[in-house]
Amino acid sequence: MMSNLLLLSLAVLAAAILGCLYRLLKGPTVPDRIAALDTIGVLLLSMIAVLCMLFRTTAYLDIILVIGILTFIGTTALTRYIERGVIIEDGDAEDDR
C-alpha cells in the first residue's frame, strides 16, 4: 500500500521535472534557465530518496549527497559566469563591482 503512494509521488515528481524542463527550454533569460536547472536538481534528489524507500535499500543514499553538492556548485558557477564572465578569478585582479 505504501509502495502505491510512493509510486504516485514518483509520478508527481516526474511531472514537476517536466514542468521545469519547459522553463529550461523556453525561459526567456539565462537566469530563468539557471533557476530551472537548480529546481530540477533538487527534485531529482528527492526522487532518489523516494526510490531508496521503494527498494528498501540504503545503497543509493550517497547519490543524494552527490547530486545536492553538484547542483549547488553548478548554480554557483553559472551565476558567477553570467555576472562577471569569469568563474574563478585571480586574487590580484579583484574588481569588486
Partner: peptide
Amino acid sequence: GACIGAISAF
C-alpha cells in the same frame, strides 16, 4: 512533499 515540489514547478 512531492505535491509541494510540483506546485513550485508550476
